[in-house]
Amino acid sequence: MKLSIINGSPRGASGNTEKLLEHFINGFSETAGNSTEKFYLIKERPDFEKLKGVFLDAEILMIAFPLYVDAMPGSVKEFFESLEPLKNKRPDLRLMFVIQNGFPETYHNRFVERYCEKLAKRLGCIYEGSICKGGCEGLTVQPPQLVEKVFSGFHNVGKSFGETGKLSPEVLSKLARPEHLTPENMKLVIPMVNNFLWDGLLNKNGAMDKKFDKPFE
């Protein structure tokens, strides 16, 4: 199988989406004969000519993006709009998505996931499914065992897809855990994110005293 990947993160190769993709690709590539190619959406705007070519030529196309204001980033929507003239030109193209978000729960992704499924149908392609995962912000500051769980999860999904050519619902729902947080986990996770991730970054930037600034009041 040949898998073409578009990393739709506005952070390009330096973001969390890239790290998740690397682990997915490692798992996918364990099966002999599998190969991948990867493109960065942010480098191709605003005309997306190269990516339109990828859409026309790919065997399986995976579009990955982080959740921005509960949907695809605006730049990813620009790309979707550029595909409008290519509707129904690839009835054999297998289309899949990776949607990752920075909240601790995966549930936030479920709404744009429905959009992605509809988009595949609208383009006249085969929808293979969406790999959804929350808890993907601050992968560099999260406890190593949590990060390892996310990475090995993506490795496993990649491996399973590489072997079977299908995204199994069981594998996807296992990766998506936690879909919601329990009240106990909520009490644990929220202060951890606020103190370690956000205060850590604010401190590093010497901006702690400005964190509640209201510049537009």
Binding site: Y68, P73, S75, E81, F216
Partner: peptide, 20 residues
């Protein structure tokens, strides 16, 4: 509504108000 969603122009505007 373009490709099933409000325009990229509108979405880019929405993405830019997260400083609020």
């Amino acid at each position: 509504v373009i490709m099933g969603y409000p325009s990229a122009m509108a979405k880019n505007a929405l993405d830019r108000i997260i400083p609020l």
